Computed example of a mutant assay.
Amino acid sequence: MEVFHRTQLAADLAKKILHVAPGSAAGSGLFLAAPRRTGKSTFLREDLRPELESAGALVVYVDLWKDKKADPGVVIVNAVRSELAKHESALKRLARNTGLEKVSVAGVGFNLQQVGLGDGVSLSDALAALSDEEKRPIALIIDEAQHAITSEMGSDALFALKAARDELNSSAHHGLRLVATGSNRDKLSMLRSSRDQAFFGAPLISFPPLGRDYVEWFCAGAGLAAPLDVDDTFTLFKEAANRPEILGAAADELRFDFELRPEEVRERFRAAVRKQIEESSQELLRVVHSLTPAQATVLRVLAGRGRGYAPFEAATLTAYGDVLKGLTGDPAAMLDVAQVQTALLALQEKALVWRAARGVYALEESSLADVMASHGMLDGVPGTQQRVERERERPA
Rank of each mutant, 00 (worst) to 15 (best):
E46F: 15
W354N: 03
R177F: 01
E101I: 15
Q8F: 08
L324S: 05
R268P: 03
A272F: 12
L130F: 02
S374I: 04
A315C: 10
D156P: 02
E267V: 05
D63V: 07
H19M: 10
Q385T: 10
A240Y: 08
N111S: 13
R355G: 07
L130R: 00
A271E: 14
L52E: 00
H5S: 08
G329R: 06
A303W: 01
N169H: 06
G27I: 04
E239L: 12
E133C: 05
V340H: 11
R243S: 13
A172I: 04
F256M: 12
V60T: 02
M153Q: 12
Q8H: 12
H147Y: 09
S124E: 08
S281R: 13
D257E: 14
G306V: 00
R212C: 02
A373E: 11
K187P: 03
E267T: 07
F4H: 07
D257Q: 10
Q146K: 09
L368E: 07
P137N: 14
R212S: 03
K275S: 12
V388Q: 15
L94V: 07
V105Y: 14
H5M: 01
F256V: 10
L100P: 08
D257N: 14
I17N: 05
G326E: 13
T318V: 09
R355L: 11
A79H: 09
A351P: 06
L347A: 09
R136A: 09
V80N: 00
I17S: 05
P72M: 08
V371E: 15
S193A: 15
L32Y: 01
N184E: 03
Y61Q: 06
K162M: 02
V323M: 14
S290N: 13
L224A: 04
T235C: 08
H87L: 01
L188R: 05
K187A: 15
A369D: 00
A251H: 10
A11S: 14
P293N: 03
R274E: 06
F207W: 10
L123P: 08
E278Q: 10
A128W: 00
P209I: 07
R355K: 15
L188I: 05
R96A: 13
E259N: 14
E391G: 01
E167K: 13
F258P: 07
